[in-house]
Every structure is written in C-alpha cells, then in structure tokens.
Write a protein that binds this DNA or RNA. Structure first.
Lengths: 120, 120
DNA sequence: ATTTCGTACAACCATTTGGTTGTAGGTTAC
DNA sequence: GTAACCTACAACCAAATGGTTGTACGAAAT
C-alpha cells in the first residue's frame, strides 16, 4: 500500500476536527495506551453508549483509530501514522516560522518588490 | 508572566477546532510567513470580508493569532507559542504510544518533584 | 467636510455537531 | 433455544458553525 505523506485538506479537516473534542482526545489516549472495545471505552464516560460509538466513528473517519472485530466485540486501536502526520504538519508550521527571519532580511534588502498586490 | 505549558481542555478544543478548516490553516500559514492586515488576507479568498473576519476571530479566540492596530488596519500575526504547544501535545501522544508497553504508573510516581520543571 | 477604506457587529440562514432514545442484528453464555 | 451482551443505525433535537447581507464607526485621503 502506498502511503502518501501529505494530507489532503479534507483529511486534515477530519483529523483536527476529531481532535477538537475532549472526549475523543481521551479515547485516543486510552487506546494509545491499550486497545479497548467500544463498550469498555463507553464505560468511562457519562454519556450513552451510542454517543461514544459516534465519537469512535468520528475518529475512525479521521483515520485516527481503526476497529477490529474480536468475537462479539469491536476492538479499537490507535492509528499512529495519522497522529504522526498531524504532528508533522504542525511542525512544518513551526519550520515555516523559523524561516521567516530570512525572508525579513530579503524584504529589508529589496523594499517591496513591484507588483506585490496582484498575484495568487 | 507565568507560561503554563499544558493546555486546558477548552483551549485545546479551540485550537484544534480552529485548525480544522482549510481557510483558517491557510490564514495561519500566510501570517506565519508574514503578518498581514485582515483586508489583505480577505483579498486572497473567494468569500466575503466578514467571513474572513470571522475566521480570524476563531483563530484569535484559539490564541493562534493576535491582532494589532496599525493606523486604520488591524495587523494579524501568528502566535507561535500556541502552535508550538499544540505540536507538543501531539508529540506527547506519540511518546505515549512508544512507551505503552511500560507501566505508566511508575513514571507518574517519579515525575514532577515540586518546582521541578516549572516555567519556560 | 466628504468620501473612502478597514473594521466591527448584528441578524439571518442552511448545515453540521453532539447528544438522546429506540430498534434490530449478531455472538457468546446458560 | 433463550437470555444477555456488544454493536449498528435511524430518528430526533438543541446548539454551534460557516456563510451571507446590512449597518455603523473611526481613521485617512481628497
């Protein structure tokens, strides 16, 4: 299987949206430590089983977790590669910022290249 | 000023939710490269000025950017520390995974002697 | 002074989200 | 077989999201 290292906008949307909820982040940390069935996960939260199931589904659509049947249980485990790629994306933002100092030198040297307004 | 290195659930919610939109991520990368006024930013997108203004407000509430008045413009610049802390959070998930075979309890028992790793 | 520019904000709308309950199907246990 | 358990999914609801237009106000340019 070919593993692209870059994320599409949609994939990134789903990943960050999935991580933008404390319950889902908690689910992620739990299954990072140890994979668990959906109902085992549900036992930890003060909400219905169906609600937890939905949260898992959101994480699954974001490829942050996968499910695997085992008997009558569905075992949830973390998908590290996705988490890693999200981390790399944020790190690339940091790199972008660190490269900003160089750009400022250029600006000072050149003082606003002509035609700066139009493009893109 | 004391800079907590950990994020509350609410802060983390806001950060990831803010990043879960392609337009807002693009705004972040633009102001990471170079700070820009809100209207300059708005010029880059096929949506109303008010919509862009709202996106900036979402990023601002997440502390991913700050605004600074300059003349009649409001200049948006990136808040690296927040981006960095989000990146660190994801990295801590990765560390969690790498250490998952070990007993976490031992780590917790030993960690953080009072005053140990406070300010940054 | 008047106009123009950049911003702020309210009101409105369609869609999505995060929760609920209820129903149904497949597995394991008795 | 029957009961109990785990999961799936639909229907429903309140609240949040992402967009719009319109109005208003301060700063700058004329």
């Amino acid at each position: 299987m070919v593993v692209r290292n870059e994320l599409t906008d949609d994939e990134t949307d789903r990943i960050f949206r999935a991580l933008a909820d404390a319950t889902r982040r908690d689910i992620v940390t739990r299954v990072l430590r140890q994979e668990q069935s959906v109902s085992a996960l549900a036992g930890h939260y003060a909400m219905s089983f169906a609600a937890v199931q939905k949260h898992v589904a959101v994480l699954e659509r974001a490829s942050l977790v996968t499910k695997q049947r085992r008997g009558r249980e569905q075992v949830v485990h973390a998908e590290m590669s996705t988490l890693h790629r999200a981390a790399r994306l944020l790190e690339s933002y940091e790199e972008l910022w660190h490269g900003r100092a160089r750009r400022i030198d250029d600006l000072l040297a050149e003082e606003v290249p002509p035609g700066g307004r139009g493009a893109e």
